[in-house]
Simulated assay, not measured.
Amino acid sequence: MLDGHAQVWRETVSGGTWNGPTPIPGGDPLAPALGVIRDNSGLIHLFGIRLSDDRIVTVAQTAPGTWGAWAVIGNPNPSDPQ
Rank of each mutant, 00 (worst) to 15 (best):
A33F: 12
H45D: 08
R50M: 04
T66P: 04
R10T: 10
A31F: 07
N19Y: 06
A31L: 05
M1R: 13
T66E: 06
T12Q: 15
E11A: 07
I56Q: 00
V57P: 00
N77S: 14
V8F: 07
T62E: 04
A6M: 12
I56V: 15
S14R: 13
L34N: 04
V36Q: 08
A6Y: 00
P21I: 01
I73E: 11
S52F: 06
V13H: 15
L43V: 10
N40D: 12
L30C: 08
P32M: 01
W70H: 02
P25N: 15
V8T: 11
V59W: 00
T22M: 05
G26W: 03
D54W: 12
V13K: 08
L43C: 09
P23D: 04
A60C: 08
V59D: 11
A63V: 10
V13I: 06
D80F: 15
P76W: 02
N40F: 14
L51W: 05
A33Y: 14
A71L: 07
H5S: 04
A33Q: 15
G16C: 02
G74I: 08
A31M: 12
G48F: 07
W9K: 01
P64D: 05
D28N: 15
L34R: 03
I56Y: 03
D53S: 08
P76N: 09
